[in-house]
Design a protein around this nucleic acid. Structure first.
Length: 282
DNA sequence: GAGTTTGAAACT
DNA sequence: CAGTTTCAAACTC
């Protein structure tokens, strides 16, 4: 069931998913916590993480190591007691506030060590600013004015081709779309279209894909553009391509540190050569 | 701004 | 599920 928020114009699933997510992070006791963890991990490994290779780059799940420093102070011994490792889906992992609250509840100082490699966020964010087109890639609040208008001609702005529709937004006055149904006056048609897409998702997808979640990236299939142009789904979203992608000659993959070092060395050598040449010429 | 290219989405 | 078509955005000139 999908409803529409009258203030934001966004389409909202009325299921109690949020509540369920909330529950995930407030386990009543250790046993319950353990059960949920096992259940979640089992689901992940069976449905999505079929191989170690797949785990390499994908955004799911996020593993968090909880370490207790309490025991350290008590015994004056330099050791850390591992409490648990928890898997957290990128959609479901709790924001920092929630985690802090949980720490307070436990009455212990728990330090979180993210096992997942932290990406170079700054770099991505800079590029995001440049490439931020119609997709609300970082889910930041976007004013209607900031949205790039669409130009749909044939789809009544009721298919995922339409970036406004895809972002769960009504078309704006700047849009140059033809015969637009995504204008707030054809709510029934819009809801029908949304339902239809959701139905298709359920039938086709093998994971909990949400076509309307533009933060989710499940891999591009770029063939010619090396994933470094605006045609690439991953590139647009400021993400590196992963093993989910079916792209060819990709230049948007995370390189190993060794490779990166090699490239830097090569670049330095080239720069040196160029410097030498220019010095000789003058 | 028009025409071309591209890859996602939709269709068969 | 794979191949094809349609679509709108990105890109080029």
């Amino acid at each position: 069931m999908i409803n529409k928020d009258s203030r934001s114009g966004m389409y909202i699933s009325s299921s109690n998913d949020l509540q369920k997510d909330e529950d995930l992070f407030i386990p009543k006791d250790n046993q319950q916590r353990e059960d949920m963890k096992q259940e979640y991990l089992l689901g992940q490994t069976q449905s999505q993480l079929s191989s170690a290779e797949q785990i390499e780059d994908i955004p799911v799940p996020r593993l968090t190591l909880f370490v207790s420093h309490m025991s350290l102070e008590e015994n004056q011994i330099q050791y850390k007691k591992q409490m648990s490792i928890e898997a957290q889906s990128p959609i479901k992992y709790s924001p920092q506030k929630k985690q802090k609250k949980q720490v307070e509840q436990d009455g212990q100082e728990i330090k979180q060590l993210d096992i997942q490699e932290i990406p170079i966020i700054q770099q991505i964010q800079t590029r995001r600013k440049i490439n931020k087109i119609n997709y609300n890639v970082d889910n930041s609040p976007v004013e209607q004015v900031e949205m790039k208008p669409c130009n749909c001609t044939k789809t009544h702005c009721l298919q995922l081709y339409c970036s406004c529709f895809h972002n769960k937004r009504q078309c704006i006055s700047e849009c140059k779309c033809n015969d637009c149904y995504n204008d707030g006056q054809h709510e029934e048609d819009v809801l029908k279209a949304v339902e239809q897409i959701k139905m298709k998702e359920q039938r086709a997808s093998h994971h909990d894909l949400d076509s309307f979640d533009t933060k989710q990236v499940w891999g591009c299939k770029c063939k010619k553009t090396k994933c470094i142009k605006g045609y690439c789904e991953c590139f647009i979203r400021g993400k590196k391509c992963t093993s989910h992608c079916q792209c060819t000659e990709c230049e948007n993959r995370r390189q190993s540190q060794k490779k990166q070092k090699k490239i830097i060395q090569q670049n330095n050598q080239i720069n040196k050569k160029i410097k030498k040449k220019t010095q000789v010429q003058f």
